[in-house]
Amino acid sequence: MLTSMTGFAARTGGADGFSWSWELRSVNGKGFDLRIRMPEWLGAMEAELRKQVGASAARGSISLNLRIAREAGDTGIEINEVALSRILEAISQIEERAGATGVNLTPASASDVMNFRGVMDAPQNREASEDLLNALRADIAPLLASFNEMRAAEGASLHAVLSRQLDEIETLTTSAQGLLGDRAAEMRSNFQAAIARVMDSRAEMDEARLAQEIAVLAVKSDVTEEIDRLHAHISAARDLLTSGAPVGRKLDFLCQEFNREANTLCSKAQNAKLTEIGLALKVLIDQMREQVQNVE
C-alpha cells in the first residue's frame, strides 16, 4: 500500500516537575527535510530524534516541535554561585573605579543583582536529568506510531483514487485502440477525396503514387505504439501501487510518460473521436499527477 507524505501527530506528557507537548507534522517535499525545534538544553536528544524519524519517513518536509516548561508551582529557581561571584566582583570594581574619579553611584540592591542574567538559575538552563530524558524518549515511539498511522490512512485513500484513475485511463486507452480500424479507412477515404479535388478526374490519378502517399501518411499518423506504451505504463503504475515501497518519485515520472503519450496521440489523431479521447486522457493524467505529489 501507499504512504502519504502528509501526516500529523501530537502528544503531551509530564515528569520530573516538567510538562511538555510534542507536535509532529509533514507535508509534500521533493526529498527528506526534517526540522527540529526544541530547547537547547535538550539538544542531546536531537541526534536520536533524527535517526528515529528518518527510519519512519523516507520523504517529505517534516517538522518536530517540543515545548516544555516547569509545572505550575514548581519554579525550581536556585542561585548560581559562580555567576553571582562574577557579578559581585564586577560591581566592586565599578564602584572602586567610580570612587577614584569622584563619581557617586547608587549602591546596587539585591533585586538589581538578581536581575543579571545567569544569577538566578532555573533547571531548564542546566543539563536535563536522566529521568526527564527517559520520559521524553518514551514518548517518541507512540508519537511516531500515531504519525505513521495517519500517513498510512491517507495513503490508503490515495491508493483508491489512483487505482480508479488508472482504470479510467485504461478504459479510454482501450476505446482509442478500438477506433484504429475505422480511423484507417476514414483516413484513406479523406486522402482520396482531397487528391480527387486537386486532380482533373479520378481516372487520371496514379494509383501507385496514391498508395505511396497513403503509406507515408499512415506511418506519420500511426498511434499504435502510443497506445501500446499507455497500456505498459498502466501495468507499471499498478505494480508500483502494490509494491509497498516509497514510490512517489517513480509514479511522478510515469505521469510524465503518460502525458507524453497522450500529447502525441492528440497530435496524430486526425479523428474527432480520437482527439476527444486524447484530451480526456490529458485531463485524467493531470488529476492523477496532482494526487501523486502526495505519495511518499
Rank of each mutant, 00 (worst) to 15 (best):
R202V: 04
I227L: 15
Q192A: 07
R188Y: 02
L251V: 04
S235M: 09
E226P: 04
V219G: 07
D252V: 02
E261H: 08
T264H: 01
D239F: 03
G278R: 12
L284G: 15
F258D: 01
K220W: 00
A218V: 05
Q212R: 09
P246C: 03
L210V: 07
T224I: 09
F258V: 01
R249I: 11
L279R: 07
E257G: 08
I277R: 07
L240C: 10
A194F: 03
D252M: 02
N259K: 05
E261F: 04
K250S: 12
R260A: 06
F191Q: 05
S243Q: 14
C266T: 13
N190Q: 15
E257D: 14
S243E: 13
L284H: 15
V247A: 12
D252P: 01
L251N: 04
Q256S: 09
I227F: 01
V216S: 08
S243H: 10
V283A: 13
V216K: 08
S201G: 04
G244W: 08
I195H: 00
I234Y: 10
Q270G: 04
Q270L: 12
G244I: 08
V216N: 07
D200K: 14
L279K: 08
L217S: 07
F258L: 04
R260W: 04
C266G: 14
A262V: 06
L279C: 06
A236W: 00
D228Y: 02
A218S: 15
L254E: 03
S235H: 13
F191N: 02
D239P: 01
R209N: 13
V198H: 07
N271V: 00
R202P: 11
K268C: 05
R197E: 12
I195V: 14
I214C: 03
D239W: 02
V198N: 07
Q192L: 12
S201P: 00
A194H: 10
F253H: 12
S235C: 05
L254H: 03
N190H: 13
L210H: 08
S201M: 03
D228M: 11
L284I: 06
S189E: 15
D200W: 02
A194G: 03
E204S: 15
D228Q: 12
Q256F: 05
D222F: 06
L210P: 06
C266R: 09
K220S: 02
F191W: 11
R197Q: 12
A215T: 14
A269I: 02
